[in-house]
Simulated assay, not measured.
Amino acid sequence: MPHDLFARDRLTIAPGAALLGGFAMDDAQALLDHIAAIAAGAPFRHMETPGGRRMSVATTSCGALGWTSSARGYRYAAHDPESGGAWSAMPEVFASLAERAAAAAGYPGYAPDACLINRYAPGTRLTLHQDRNERDMAAPIVSISLGLSATFLWGGAERRDRPRRIPLHHGDVVVWGGPARLNFHGIDTLPRGEHPSTGPYRYNLSFRQTGIRHMALCDPMQSDPRAP
């Protein structure tokens, strides 16, 4: 049965941004099963930032496009730069859940073509950043939390704006777009813990409707100079 979205489950974070508490709970195990299958073909890896730093969060992707990073810049690519093969197709449960969450937050007609999958181990974090590599800025970001609880850092339009600290738990979904589309956001350092479904890890599914023509990205090293 789909998760019923009662008023107590929804938190308006800012105009255009909402937390849908527990929205992904009914599909959580299916999501985790698909993550394992995707990672078997495109293993989690610690990418390098354009500044030459190793990212503490491990990543992989699925969908028509995957998000990658290296000394050459942040970019979307139609092929995994490590294997040269195409990314795994986005599972139907991924796309359907992202579409339903976007609609519940006020963004109907969402059609993601990329899903960045992040794996957090205790001690890892994601510094404040913007998601700016997409060309379709009218489409929201849909972010699904699985496993260990974490603290979501929700900032403002400027990096210097002090962020709010919002707890995220297994099955929670955050959607932001419209006037909040380019707000800075991140994840505070993940504390140690053990989750019955994911062990010592937290997983995050970040869906994007890129607006990028896939045929133009046959070169996996094509770069987008904008930082996320």
Rank of each mutant, 00 (worst) to 15 (best):
P2Q: 14
H3G: 11
A7S: 14
R8H: 14
R8G: 01
D9I: 05
R10E: 14
L11T: 13
L11N: 03
I13K: 06
A14N: 04
A14K: 05
A14Q: 04
L19N: 05
L20D: 02
L20Y: 04
A24N: 09
M25C: 14
M25T: 11
D26Q: 15
D27K: 14
D27P: 02
A28N: 02
A28E: 00
A30E: 12
D33L: 10
I35W: 02
I35H: 00
A36L: 13
A40H: 13
P43G: 10
H46V: 09
M47V: 11
E48C: 13
E48M: 15
T49R: 08
G52S: 09
S56Y: 07
S56V: 15
A58N: 09
A58Y: 07
T60C: 11
S61D: 10
C62A: 11
C62G: 08
G63C: 02
L65E: 08
G66K: 04
W67L: 15
A71N: 12
G73R: 01
Y76L: 05
A77W: 01
P81E: 00
G85L: 12
A86S: 15
A86Y: 11
W87Q: 06
W87V: 04
M90L: 08
A98L: 08
A98D: 04
A102E: 01
A102Q: 00
A103M: 02
A103D: 00
A104H: 06
Y107P: 00
P108M: 11
D113V: 12
C115T: 06
L116S: 03
Y120G: 00
G123S: 04
R125Y: 13
L126E: 01
L126I: 11
T127W: 13
Q130V: 10
Q130Y: 04
D131S: 03
R132Y: 09
R132W: 08
N133I: 08
R135Y: 12
D136R: 13
M137W: 13
A138H: 10
P140T: 00
I141C: 01
V142W: 00
S143M: 01
S143A: 03
S145P: 01
S145Y: 00
G147Q: 03
G147I: 02
S149T: 10
F152H: 02
W154V: 03
G155W: 01
I166H: 03
H170L: 08
H170F: 07
G171L: 05
G171V: 02
G171S: 12
D172C: 08
V173T: 09
V174Q: 00
V174M: 06
V174H: 00
W176F: 15
G177I: 01
A180C: 06
L182T: 12
H185I: 02
H185Y: 03
G186R: 03
D188A: 15
T189Y: 05
H195M: 09
T198K: 10
G199H: 09
G199W: 07
R202Y: 04
R202M: 07
T210F: 09
T210Q: 09
A216V: 12
L217F: 11
D219C: 07
D219N: 13
Q222G: 04
A227E: 13
P228C: 14
